[in-house]
Design a protein around this nucleic acid. Structure first.
Lengths: 329, 329
DNA sequence: ATTATTAATGGAATCTTTTTCACTTTAATC
DNA sequence: GATTAAAGTGAAAAAGATTCCATTAATAAT
């Protein structure tokens, strides 16, 4: 069974392809009602659907966006991707999914590949070790999601207020009476992690605490880092609170503390970050700084499409965080 | 800055586009070494990259596959998607991500859309309420992932041995001394769920147990169903074990039991299914039936690409499950 | 009756690539 | 030196859509 083309429809309707195209795209002010109806009827009957690739080539618009994330199996990115796909679908766009595995080279390859595929725009959560820029100008519209790059390129940014989040988290631990508050997170190059750290420092200093290098451990946003970091911090201090850079780290921290028979929250209090879907089901349920993860994705799509449509858009949007108090503190 | 085309490269090299195309695609046995090198040098220097859309249109091959899942923010599908994207990328394919939200109509729309986009094949985890078929013949290659449809269409299938998994899970609970073993899972229409149920029944009957309808609760593969189902089962029985259709349900079950101050595993034992990333970090860590989730995705891609390449392929592949014993039993 | 205007439609170019086939040039053979 | 074969290249068609511009027919205006 051969796929229908506009040419075939035109033959069936005894008109030219131009006419069919016009009717199909609503540019039919000069088409007689009779032909219009005849064409539509045939299109309907034959169940004709235009070839999007051909259309994309001609129009230089594919209604496709690329999404590059470090790792889709991370709940954070999974939920974000859901927000993105949902929002994109509503606006008639499709999403090409790319995992960079936190590898800068792969990320760059994907960016090229996506442009070869004529995507209309790209949503990008850069790899952690990528802080400088490699985008040339005049390329596809890009929205940076949950990351920032220090450059005045014409790039959109959707961020959460990580510094404030870090501040709130640390302040919460201080208010709960913690005296020696550790910080375990990803490396400082990671934009989010770094800003949470700034908030952490700010809260400590504001309350007259000293910054103790021995209470700071950086690795990656993973359970392992949480686990290893906690064991490390426990070695050399009177640790009684940990601000974890994200909930995965908090999960690892909890695991380590349990193994050492240290009571949470009595002996050590834990605050995470993100509020991933499972945070509240952990034991104890994790006190965390909620980010509107799904909305981050949604907003990124909306911003990107605004840019694509050349609408006048604010190029940076910062979403607020919120403390969710649970059993771990 | 205008995008380079093969035409421009041809001009620069003083040859025709045909020659450039041949060199670029390795069909250069009749091209003199001199021209070949000259072209390659220019391509390199100008950083020319062929337009994939144009190529796709001409070749009727886009090196794109569609992925339709109920919900990417579910860890199970997220991990599967990771396996898929990784495998696809290795073979030079890109993945268009679609969430059906378990909605059959949306699923069907996506299938059409993907074909309009000329994907070379589709990997599909159908919505739960879709057991009959709506694929016409002669369409794109399709591989059903973690689902089955009772039809002899020429469709690939990647499955896990759910019945065996259900059997092993239930047998494990029996061996641990449980007398009243509940079953909480998704609706029976869900292919995986149904087969796990068959395994459950088989194990029970084999050991001389009766099937007690009051110990069976179906809803969806969600934490809520686990929670509600457990409360329900607790009402009317001497419940001392629950086989949960997946790990999310197990998480909900644990939550309900904790709220009722029922000890796990002393009073009630729990077995889940899937072994999602977080199963072992729950409290207690969840005993579960491991599926090779990542590999499911990988195998689906490999099968799909075999079909696309018209290689002779076994059209059904069933992967094995494995009991992972942890604290919840 | 002639011109101007509007309505309705279609031809052909275009988007970028691949590929067939024909053509020219060079080398090889007798 | 004539014929044949092989090497090297390019013109043009094709993939399936959109759109510019031209054309025709019908109607209105002068």
């Amino acid at each position: 069974m051969i796929k229908l083309t506009i040419k075939r429809i035109a033959e069936l309707a005894n008109v030219s392809t131009a006419t069919v195209s016009k009717v199909l795209n609503g540019k039919d002010k000069n088409i007689s009602e009779a032909t219009r109806r005849r064409i539509l009827e045939i299109v309907e009957r034959e169940n004709y659907r235009p070839n999007r690739i051909a259309k994309g080539l001609k129009l230089k618009k594919t209604n496709t966006i690329g999404l590059i994330v470090p790792d889709i199996k991370n709940l954070f990115f999974a939920e974000m991707a859901k927000g993105i796909e949902d929002a994109a679908e509503k606006k008639g766009y499709s999403v090409i999914l790319c995992n960079s595995n936190n590898n800068r080279d792969k990320e760059e390859k994907y960016i090229n590949m996506l442009q070869d595929r004529m995507v209309d725009g790209i949503i990008l959560t850069t790899s952690e070790n990528n802080i400088d820029l490699y985008f040339r100008d005049g390329q596809v519209p890009i929205v940076l999601l949950d990351r920032n790059i220090d450059a005045d390129l014409n790039i959109g940014r959707i961020l959460t207020d990580n510094e404030e989040g870090g501040y709130i988290a640390t302040k919460h631990l201080i208010d709960k009476g913690c005296k020696n508050i550790g910080f375990i997170s990803s490396i400082n190059k990671n934009f989010s992690s770094y800003n949470r750290f700034i908030g952490y420092k700010k809260a400590l200093l504001e309350s007259g605490y000293k910054i103790n290098e021995k209470l700071i451990y950086t690795g990656s946003f993973s359970i392992e880092t949480g686990y290893n970091g906690t064991l490390e911090l426990l070695k050399n201090s009177e640790l009684d609170g940990i601000f974890c850079g994200n909930d995965y780290i908090a999960i690892g921290a909890i695991k380590a503390l349990k193994e050492k028979n240290i009571k949470i929250p009595d002996e050590v209090k834990i605050v995470g970050f993100d509020d991933i879907l499972l945070a509240k089901y952990m034991e104890p349920p994790i006190t965390t700084i909620r980010q509107p993860i799904y909305d981050l994705g949604k907003e990124a799509v909306n911003m990107l499409i605004s840019i694509i449509d050349k609408k006048d858009t604010e190029m940076t949007k910062i979403l607020k965080t919120e403390l969710v108090e649970r059993g771990s503190s």
